[in-house]
Simulated scan of single mutants.
Amino acid sequence: MKKTILAAAMITVGLIAGCGSGGGTTPATGTTSLSGKVADGYLVGATVFLDKNGNYQLDAGEPSATTDANGAYTLTVDPADVGKYPIVALAIKGQTMDKDTGLPVANSYVLSMPATATSGTVNSNFISPMSSQLREMMETGKYASMQQAMTALAAKLGMTVGTNMLEDYMLANNATMHTAAQNMASLMGGEMAQVMGTSGTTVTVDVNRYRGMMGMIFSNMSSIKGPNSQTAMTTLMGTMTTTLGNMPMMSAGQPYLNMSTAFRGGMVGGMSGTGGMMN
């Protein structure tokens, strides 16, 4: 299964038209650039794209790029699309290299950045497990603003009010955020067999399962954030695998669950696997 996912991801990246690169390219007339970096540690060779239909997978016609040796990317997009669509990054098993370790990532996983946080006027559209969590928090409809969501996430991590949870935590030498992001990426990668699949040559993402996974990570953030949280992570990984495996797979054309609904019911209460982002 995982070999199939890797092969499909590589084929997809090669076939999609309009791909850019991590290096700064000069946008064509009538276009603008969205630039930034992708990280757990900086990720080299990750696929980045503007997700115009919100399905977390690269489709024909969506601007895309591959991160360079510094984990940087530049997307050339229509100015009207800036702030309208989220940016998604795919780390590909065996192909994308994590500069924290100098090795290819052990499992494929998906990161994203909220549409409203993107900007064409800066070079800091930073995609990470933190930005991914904030995107899912905003999808619940519970948070009135990005700042409110960042405050809630900072509280889960025991950080001070006003911390910029979208910052490049490595550039800022923020060890707390970096360690938490590493742990989150490990959990996300460990559950991708439950979340990712293939359709022909396209990598697919079961959005309901993906969002369920992110809800469980959020619920247990205070337990998994630190450098000595391996026991808690192992316990959570087992719970997540069971819970996600019991979620019905999303059929083609089936609408995504409302985020407020997706994290109720079977996801209440910390390590039991319940609760999610609404609690």
Rank of each mutant, 00 (worst) to 15 (best):
G45C: 02
K2S: 14
Q95A: 14
I11G: 09
S223K: 10
M138L: 15
N123M: 10
V110Q: 11
T31V: 12
T201Q: 03
M138G: 09
G45W: 03
A7H: 04
L50A: 08
A28R: 15
N246M: 15
T121G: 13
A46K: 10
G189L: 02
G20T: 01
I87C: 10
L43C: 02
M250C: 04
P255F: 04
S145D: 02
M259K: 11
G61Q: 11
V82A: 10
M240L: 01
G24H: 05
G71K: 02
T66G: 07
A8V: 02
V82W: 07
G276N: 14
L166T: 07
M113A: 13
S251K: 15
Q148G: 10
N125Q: 02
S33L: 05
E62R: 01
T242F: 05
Q230T: 09
M237R: 14
Q133T: 11
Y56N: 15
T67V: 00
T163F: 12
T261Y: 10
Y85T: 01
T198N: 06
Q133K: 11
A175M: 14
T179K: 00
A175H: 14
A144Q: 00
E191Q: 15
N246W: 10
A72Q: 05
M196P: 08
A72P: 01
K93G: 04
V88H: 09
G200P: 15
T201Y: 08
N107E: 06
D206Q: 04
S108C: 08
N220P: 14
T176K: 15
T239H: 00
K156V: 12
A8E: 00
L75Q: 05
T235E: 00
T241S: 12
L111I: 02
A91D: 04
M150Y: 01
L90P: 03
A7S: 06
E136L: 00
M267N: 08
T231I: 02
S33H: 03
T160R: 01
M277S: 02
T261C: 05
V105K: 07
S229M: 09
T118F: 10
Y73W: 00
T31S: 14
S132T: 11
Q182M: 01
A46E: 03
N174T: 00
Y210N: 06
G94S: 09
A80T: 15
V38S: 00
Y42R: 09
T26S: 08
A154C: 12
I16H: 12
G23V: 13
N246R: 06
L50F: 09
K2Y: 11
E136H: 04
G212Y: 13
T47Y: 03
L34E: 02
K99Q: 05
P114H: 05
T121Y: 13
S229P: 10
M138F: 10
M113T: 03
G265L: 12
P255T: 01
P129M: 07
M277G: 06
S119M: 10
S145K: 13
I217P: 12
V205T: 12
K93T: 08
T140S: 14
T66A: 06
